[in-house]
Amino acid sequence: MASFDGLGDILADALAEAIATVTGINLEHMPDCSQNFFGEIIGAMVLSSKKSGILFISANEKDIRVLCSNMIGASEDEITCGDTEDTLCEFVNMTAGSAKLRLSDPDYRFVLSSPFIIRGGGIEVSTKSRTQVISKTLGNGEINIRIKFIC
């Protein structure tokens, strides 16, 4: 049975595995020093179950552009805004789908919504005091990608 803290590792591992599989880029767990920071582009999805929550995956545009370029084998100049948004949505989909497979706890038998995109710099999300928040960062010194789950 996965604890809420364990859920964070499962989500982060699922994202790292998805990125490594489709882009060949390996990202490691990084210290999470700025809990409220989001990148310029956020992919999100509602995960509904007994314990429902919202999954956010965010990064700066240039980092998603690199991942997309590796994924489709095109140069970074050829990548459009639509491509970066689609790439991030796919990472959200793959992360939630893989995490769902790894979770045996009935409280986390999620039904997944369609992923959606939020754009904008300096976005912060505030939560009520008893709201549970998972925040994890993956990176490799060049690319940073943030995963957040609010439940």
Binding site: C68, I72, D83, D86, T87, E90
Partner: peptide, 12 residues
């Protein structure tokens, strides 16, 4: 519905 996945399929 993902154009990126369709691009991966087309390239393959």
């Amino acid at each position: 519905d993902s154009s990126v996945i369709r691009k991966v399929i087309i390239a393959t």
